[in-house]
Nucleic acid binder design. Sequence first.
DNA 1: ATGCTATATTCGATTATTCGAATATTGGCA
DNA 2: TGCCAATATTCGAATAATCGAATATAGCAT
Lengths: 118, 118
Amino acid sequence: MPDSMRQFKAGIFQALGHPTRVAIAEYLSYGEMSVGQLCEKIGIEQANASQHLAVLRNKHLVETRKEGNQIFYRLGDPILGEVLAKMREYFFAHMAEAMETLRLEKQQAKKAEQEVGR
Amino acid sequence: MPDSMRQFKAGIFQALGHPTRVAIAEYLSYGEMSVGQLCEKIGIEQANASQHLAVLRNKHLVETRKEGNQIFYRLGDPILGEVLAKMREYFFAHMAEAMETLRLEKQQAKKAEQEVGR
DNA sequence: ATGCTATATTCGATTATTCGAATATTGGCA
DNA sequence: TGCCAATATTCGAATAATCGAATATAGCAT
């Protein structure tokens, strides 16, 4: 496995390595959506959505369709939906640990805050 | 899907979002390996390997076993191997495009270098 | 043309990742 | 005990990712 392939795969993982982009990918795995719809569902600002969509576009993970004023996004390959499904499977298998991880991270964030404020 | 779950998933993708860590995960998907073996196979320095392994450990993606002087790593859950397999599938389906993406990125990197040097 | 709506891009400040170098830890062995 | 090999951690500098604000573009209606 040459390094160029690893770079390619890592690039895809990295593109999915942000909560907002996971949310986008999951919504799109159920069907296409306009940018506005994604913003509303996820609860993010338009510019921010565009930026995250640009990341996904640059890796060719999503494709677009123009309809009048708006742009509809969809997953570029259903395999990505399967990857997300695998991750869901993993998530449920590790639910408890997941919660623990998140708790610890939140706790550490709080501690760091305190240290700054002190 | 609450945001905490997305954070958890994104954290895992992000952990896999580096070529070296993809390499580590792929080697481990075939069986356990000591740190030294990983270093040799991948061609990285010991300290660097330890840092990347720490990232994977923090997300509980790998587990360890001590044997005398050395520490053997393995994937924490075979589902991860399946995720990697899906990615391999994706990779082969998009081989040509993958090469193009990498070419473009390399090209842009070169351009950025020139601009700095200028 | 003007204006309006949806989306994209650029900019700058902040924060997070990454690497190598140096240092620490741990286990076995003389 | 002292030493060596394997692994981990810390530190600092360089690079990359993130966000909001501002600005740009494109399509449609009047």
